[in-house]
Design a protein around this nucleic acid. Structure first.
Lengths: 121, 121
DNA sequence: CGCGACCGACTACACATGTAGTCAATAAGG
DNA sequence: CCTTATTGACTACATGTGTAGTCGGTCGCG
């Protein structure tokens, strides 16, 4: 699967949230703090089309864009890549790391324990 | 902290493993499948120096390079960034995702449960 | 039917990154 | 001492990315 750059990812998020959308609609929904003009969003859309991670259908004179890959699949690939790189492909060190870094609240711990218990049954 | 590109990261790994090292020594230790020449490694080293994530000390006519940031800190930042982006900053969905994607073996589950139990006490 | 708003295509440009070559200086070895 | 191997500095260049402008065509409104 093609890599999706950080900025492009913001556009994908919009379309994973709701699709199909026109370019203008996507621009409206991109987080305001990006400060992008419509032109910038259009560039992103073309590039994502070229990468094959977006699809488009003609709607009169415009395009309607929609994701061509599932968010779930992309996230799987990307998070897997990070785990391979930084945690040698092992998940436990990642969890240990998160715990040590206080990214795990007591509630998280409860939730994860429940999740794991469910997994075992 | 400055971002470290994918290729540059490979150089950092070498120096986190052992430091200080000369450029030639780093080149020797970079995973062979990168297929990098010494020149390429030197470019990486300069860029990492410029980014401030490496430090160097003079050793005669050469430099000895060593990390200026801790691997732990970098990994914390990078993994945090990913969790923020893809899992809205929540850890539980990440673990759920890993579970659903079969990245969790039964042994992982055992280990993580033990880890969490230890955390609670 | 004519004009203005809007659309995608194309162009632009700076900076990052992967990948490597050149070169002047110098240390080391004979 | 003189040659040679080595070193960091600098240069090079293609591709990716962030950010945006221009332009020819066309749809809708009056």
């Amino acid at each position: 699967m093609e890599r999706i750059a950080e900025g492009e990812y913001a556009v994908m998020e919009v379309l994973w949230e709701k699709a199909p959308l026109t370019a203008a609609e996507v621009a409206d929904r991109v987080p305001a703090d990006r400060g992008w003009t419509l032109a910038t969003v259009k560039t992103m859309l073309s590039r994502l089309l070229a990468k094959g991670v977006l699809a488009h259908e003609q709607d009169g004179r415009r395009y309607l864009y929609r994701p061509a890959i599932r968010r779930e699949d992309y996230v799987a690939e990307e998070s897997g890549r990070m785990i391979d790189r930084m945690f040698a492909g092992r998940v436990t060190p990642l969890v240990a790391h998160l715990a040590a870094r206080d990214r795990l609240t007591p509630e998280d711990i409860e939730e994860i324990e429940a999740l794991l218990k469910a997994l075992k049954s």
